Amino acid sequence: MDQPTPQKNLKGTWNQAILTFLFPIFLVLGVRWALYEPFVIPSGSMIPNLLVHDHILVKKFAFGLHFPFSDKWMFQWSKPERGEIVVFKYPENPDVYYIKRLIGLPGDEVVVQDGHITVNGMKWDLSPLAYTNAESGFAYYNESIDGNPHVVRFMTPEVVEGIAPKVYKVPNGHFFFMGDNRDQSSDSRYWGFVKNDYIVGKAWLIWLSCDATLPSMTFVCDPSQLRWNRFFQKLK
């Protein structure tokens, strides 16, 4: 007589299939939570260092780790430093992410006058710059803090003199941010300070950039409009 065909144990097969399906999802979520998260620049507030449709990677682990799905820090091993480009949650709507340059730390006194920044009595260097591919109607400057320069942009006339200084005292546990496109940036000068829990990470790298997106999919770069010279530029 024929021997009965043994039944396959499908339980192990299903477990393996589920694990195979879920593992890549958990891996991607884990990388986005703890290591790197991609963002797309939606506005010109950080011109000339970041352009609209620049795709960047943000180091989520640069300052610590938040609890998943929470603003609270699980571990925070360092704090952002002045001059760094940082991604954070917009204080007036934490569901929205902003990217700006860090100007003032907790306890700092920030004075903004005639385009110049002074922090705790120390004036940041600001020197005119002949900037490559500069748009007409704007003036570009090298701004430097602690010997680390970056480029900022003003609308002409370059720096309007005679404007009364504006003083900002940064509360404990908060930060003061400004965009590099100084006259066309919504930042801490207008909506206030950013609390420490809203810090997301340090902007690190431009990995993709384009002048325009596809009309049918506005979140996808048009392959014919790529800005190849911006690929893999580290941010500073």
Rank of each mutant, 00 (worst) to 15 (best):
D2N: 07
D2G: 02
Q3C: 07
P4I: 08
P6K: 10
Q7H: 13
N9M: 03
K11L: 15
G12I: 09
G12W: 03
N15P: 00
Q16I: 05
A17C: 03
A17V: 03
I18K: 01
L22G: 11
F23D: 00
L27T: 15
L29F: 13
R32K: 12
E37Q: 15
P38R: 10
S43E: 05
M46V: 03
P48D: 12
P48L: 13
L50T: 07
V52I: 15
V58H: 00
V58R: 03
K60P: 03
F61A: 10
F61D: 05
H66T: 09
P68T: 12
D71P: 00
M74W: 15
Q76C: 02
W77T: 12
S78G: 13
K79G: 06
P80E: 05
E81H: 06
R82W: 04
I85A: 08
V86H: 10
P94M: 10
D95W: 10
V96P: 01
V96E: 11
Y98N: 07
L102I: 04
L102K: 03
L102Y: 04
P106D: 10
P106R: 08
P106Y: 08
D108G: 06
D108F: 12
V111F: 04
V111N: 05
V112W: 11
V112T: 09
H116N: 03
N120K: 00
L126C: 10
L126S: 12
P128I: 14
A130W: 01
A130V: 02
T132L: 12
E135L: 06
F138C: 04
N142C: 01
E143S: 11
S144E: 15
I145F: 15
I145A: 11
D146E: 13
N148M: 13
N148D: 13
N148S: 14
P149M: 13
H150A: 11
H150G: 03
V152F: 12
V152W: 11
P157H: 15
E158Q: 08
V159M: 14
G162C: 12
A164I: 12
K166P: 01
Y168K: 05
F175Q: 01
F176G: 02
F176C: 02
F177P: 00
M178L: 15
G179L: 07
N181A: 11
R182H: 08
D183V: 02
Q184M: 11
S185W: 04
S185G: 05
V194T: 14
K195D: 14
G201E: 03
G201V: 06
W204R: 00
I206E: 05
W207P: 00
L208S: 06
S209H: 08
S209G: 06
P215I: 14
T218A: 04
T218N: 02
C221H: 09
D222R: 05
D222E: 04
P223A: 13
L226R: 13
R230V: 01
F232W: 10
